[in-house]
Amino acid sequence: MLMKSSTDMMMPTSILSCKHCSTKHPNYAYEVSKDPAEWKYVEHLLPKSFVPEVPGSSLHHYPTPSGWVPQQEEKYAKLPYYISRTKNHQMPIYIKERTDSPLKFTHIGNISGNIWALDADIRELLEASKTDPNYLVLTQVHEPGRFIRVKGVHADTIAQFLIDKGF
């Protein structure tokens, strides 16, 4: 009822016919505007239908306060494998739990290229960073599904490793 498309300039008239605006709220003084220039401020509040693309590096200094960095092609260009980000520009690494046991594993998805080379690198990383000498690094490579599962919770370690690689 409020709007059909952000590009159409039909919203000011439809606002008048909105059921929430027809009865005047006693506590607030407001006025109804038909100015298309003001509509863009309403658009800021409306949910977006698409996930926006990453703004250019000129707009931001990376890493952002949350620690997010974009992909760097010059770093990963020579590697035999590639990991694409999710549609929300996040790393496709998840901690999953089996339903029949409390066993947790780390799931790394969206892998293209030589998945076995990535598996070898992850094993090497985890072997080097393990603190318990009895800990056994166990990984599963699902070649048709294009993902790797690692036993244990290693999401942060692997994510940092992949960010360093440029993914």
């Binding site: 977006k48 996930v51 549609k87």
Partner: peptide, 8 residues
């Protein structure tokens, strides 16, 4: 691509 990139 809409379904691959849509929000939500």
């Amino acid at each position: 691509l809409y379904h691959l990139h849509r929000s939500g």
